[in-house]
Simulated assay, not measured.
Amino acid sequence: MSRYRGPRIKIIRRSGILPGLTSKILKPKSSYIDRSTANKKISQYRIRLEEKQKLRFHYGLTERQLLKYVRIARKTKGSTGQVLLQLLEMRLDNTIFRLGMATTIPGARQLVNHRHILINNNIVDIPSYNCELGDIIAIKNNKKSQSMITRNLNLLQKFKIPNHLTFDSTQLQGLVNQRIHREFINLKINELLVVEYYSRQV
């Protein structure tokens, strides 16, 4: 299954707020009724599926990528669900988004693909690159790259950077200073349901 490229409003109407997918917020509709679930008993499988889809859409992953991360998380010491979220949070595209350099994860992915991002003074054009402790994420030293980042930072003036990252607005660079803790992940999701969904596939 490929990465989702369709209407984002449709997804957040169904799944709720997904800050990584879009910065748009739907106005509440008191008269809106989801006819697909009205007067129907929702199965446990569907609950797990929807939670998995929420995670996939937020981080902009393909089904194959998410399955790969679940397999890695299962082999890693600790709670599988929390390890899975830590792996996803340490992706380069998500780290750029969390630093406020991009308004969404797809926007961050585009910055990486277009070679605007440096890791420890080296250009990295792989959005799935796994950031490590001590990594310095900076912007290429040219006017176009820096103006794009400055514009995004101005749009996100009240954006709160999580505790595992620090950002120097004068140098336009961020630092990964620790592993992220569960409470700083800005996504309402039950990661255990995602792990249960994949329990028979890994």
Rank of each mutant, 00 (worst) to 15 (best):
K158V: 02
K140M: 02
S31Q: 13
P127G: 03
I139V: 15
R35H: 12
K158C: 01
S79G: 08
K10S: 15
Q178H: 14
K41G: 05
L87C: 07
S128L: 04
G174D: 02
L118M: 15
T95R: 02
H58R: 07
G20V: 05
V83R: 09
G134R: 12
D135G: 11
A102M: 07
I33E: 10
V194K: 05
N152R: 07
K27I: 13
I25N: 10
G20I: 05
I180K: 02
Q65G: 03
L67P: 00
S147Q: 15
I161R: 00
I25T: 13
M1S: 11
G107R: 05
M101N: 00
N130H: 11
R13T: 14
T150F: 06
L99S: 02
N130K: 13
R46Y: 14
K160G: 00
S169A: 06
F159I: 00
I136Y: 09
H181E: 15
S79E: 14
I149F: 02
I12P: 10
K54I: 12
G100D: 02
I137C: 03
L49S: 12
G20R: 04
K140R: 14
Y129T: 08
K75W: 08
R91L: 05
S128T: 10
K24W: 09
V70S: 07
R179K: 14
Q146C: 10
I42H: 09
K77P: 06
D125E: 13
Q44F: 11
Y45L: 14
D168L: 08
N130S: 14
Q65T: 08
L175A: 06
K27N: 15
K54S: 10
F97W: 12
S169M: 02
R98K: 11
N120R: 09
I42K: 10
I139T: 08
D93Q: 08
I117L: 03
E63M: 04
I185H: 02
N142P: 06
E50Y: 14
Y197R: 07
M90Q: 11
I123S: 08
L67W: 06
K77S: 14
R109Y: 02
I12N: 11
L155K: 13
Q65V: 04
R109Q: 10
V124Q: 03
N177Y: 01
L55H: 06
N141E: 14
S169C: 02
G6P: 06
L155Q: 11
E89C: 05
L99E: 01
V202Q: 03
N94G: 02
A38L: 15
S30Y: 13
L156K: 08
Q82L: 12
F159Q: 04
N163S: 10
H116Y: 09
K10G: 13
I72S: 05
N94Y: 04
K29Y: 09
N142Y: 11
Y197W: 15
D93A: 09
F159R: 04
S2K: 14
L88E: 01
N122T: 06
K75M: 15
I105R: 11
K140E: 01
P7K: 09
R109I: 00
V112P: 00
I42Y: 09
F184G: 04
L84F: 07
T22C: 12
Y69V: 06
N142K: 06
M101G: 00
L133T: 13
I123F: 05
G174Y: 00
E89L: 04
S2P: 15
H164R: 03
A38P: 01
G16A: 13
N94K: 03
Q86L: 08
A73Q: 03
K40T: 11
A108E: 08
R115P: 01
I137Y: 01
L18T: 11
K158R: 07
